[in-house]
Amino acid sequence: MSFGLYYHIPYCFSRCRYCDFYAAGAWRGVPDAYIDALVAALGRHVLPGRPDTLYFGGGTPSLLTPAQCARLIQAAAPKPGAEITLEANPETVTLASLQGYRAAGVNRLSIGVQSARDSQLRTLGRPHTAAQARQAFALARQAGFANISGDIMLALPHYTRAEFDETLELIRQGGACHISAYLLKIEPGSAFGRRPPAGLPDPDQAAGFYLYAVEQLTRAGYRQYEISSFARPGFEGRHNRLYWDCEDYLGLGPAAHSCLGGKRFFYPADTAAFIAGADPVPDGGCGAEDYLILQLRLSTGLDLAEYRRRGGAAFTPHQLAFLERCAQAGYLTLTPRRLTLTPLGMIVQNSILEELI
């Protein structure tokens, strides 16, 4: 069994208008007291072993100094060859900081681009420009990073296929070997949720943008392996795969979630409480239903024998008839061994799951 460790870095320059993730407010750096708290929290857990993956997520992890990053990696003591990922915002990185992260042990960088159009970035509330995104990729390569991911957000206000093409080209030319492509979701707790922007695509248009993205990413050499994840061969993200395969992972920081030994828990969304040493809150277990939900995110789909081994119930005649209709409509493939959603099926994954759970 593999084990992953997640460090949540909740600090940001400012909040993007689509974001409803927990954040600690506007900061220009990460307080050392927060690093102390992460290290202390790590020491309070009984781990299943040294981590195979380590992920710095946020927030804006690239607000960490290289020295802070090095301290957290040393505390984690990851296995040799572990995948160590740091999310980075383009406006926060320099050649010196990226070189420092590499020296600390980071070997995978995830750069938040979202769009290649400055007007769109301003609409989203992103504090960087397209030129800064291009520069971030160039600096990452100069610093020695060979495993680089880039984020694209789809179905944005007044979106067009041309905007996607421009963003894909920026990331591809930047040397990315992995791309995460997400549909914009209007979250109730975000600024967009309180005041939706004009020009949002309708659901059918958004689905069309998603299918176009899958097609163009495939043509560009990025194979889809999960609903929102595309990679050149050998560069699939190992850390998130732990989540989808229901492996053990520990999340540290306010609002961070974990699953260890089949038990889920999370830290309250309160930075001050976390720094003060708050305990995590139990959140139930991880069973066959979780496995079904998470495996259907993957292009490899659900292994039905493994699903039954984990306690999954056999599909009823009604469910099998439903799945057969979905297969005929092009939403999935079903064999005696495996259930797999097509890209078209991934768009309506929630509706399919409602019928199966």
Rank of each mutant, 00 (worst) to 15 (best):
C286S: 14
I179M: 04
L353P: 03
G312D: 11
L170R: 00
D270H: 09
E247D: 15
Y210K: 02
G29V: 00
T85N: 04
Y22L: 03
Y243W: 02
A133S: 14
A176K: 00
R44K: 15
R161D: 13
A288R: 07
G262A: 09
I227E: 08
Q205C: 10
A138D: 15
M1G: 14
S14N: 13
F266Y: 15
Q319R: 07
D165I: 05
V46H: 10
F192M: 07
E163Y: 02
V93Q: 02
P336F: 02
I84H: 13
Q224R: 15
P282I: 12
R126K: 11
F13P: 08
L294T: 13
L211T: 11
T160K: 03
I171R: 03
A329Y: 01
F274P: 06
G261E: 03
I148Q: 02
L124R: 11
T129H: 01
R134Q: 15
H45N: 03
G199N: 04
E236P: 00
A181G: 11
G311D: 01
A88V: 04
I275A: 12
A70L: 06
A67S: 13
G312E: 01
G29T: 14
A77D: 15
G175P: 06
G174M: 10
P336L: 01
T316K: 08
L320Q: 15
G193Q: 04
Y210G: 04
V46W: 07
E236W: 09
R102A: 12
P188Q: 00
L250Y: 03
G100E: 04
L38S: 03
E163W: 05
E215C: 04
A138P: 05
D283M: 07
F3W: 01
G311W: 05
D165M: 09
R325Y: 12
I293N: 10
A82M: 05
P157L: 05
F13R: 15
Y182S: 10
F209C: 11
I35R: 04
D20V: 04
T271E: 15
A130V: 08
D118H: 13
R308Y: 02
L63K: 02
M1A: 12
G221M: 00
P268G: 07
A305Q: 11
L124Y: 01
G285S: 12
T92L: 11
I84W: 01
P127F: 08
L356Y: 06
T218G: 13
V113K: 00
A329F: 11
P336H: 07
A256W: 05
L320A: 05
G43L: 04
Q224M: 06
N240M: 13
A23S: 14
I357C: 14
Y249T: 08
L302D: 09
P66L: 06
K79N: 13
G25D: 00
T123V: 15
A40T: 15
G125M: 08
R15E: 10
R122V: 13
Y34C: 03
E83R: 06
L170V: 14
G25E: 03
I347W: 12
L339T: 08
T342E: 02
L5F: 10
A273H: 06
L304W: 01
R117Q: 15
F322S: 06
P282Y: 09
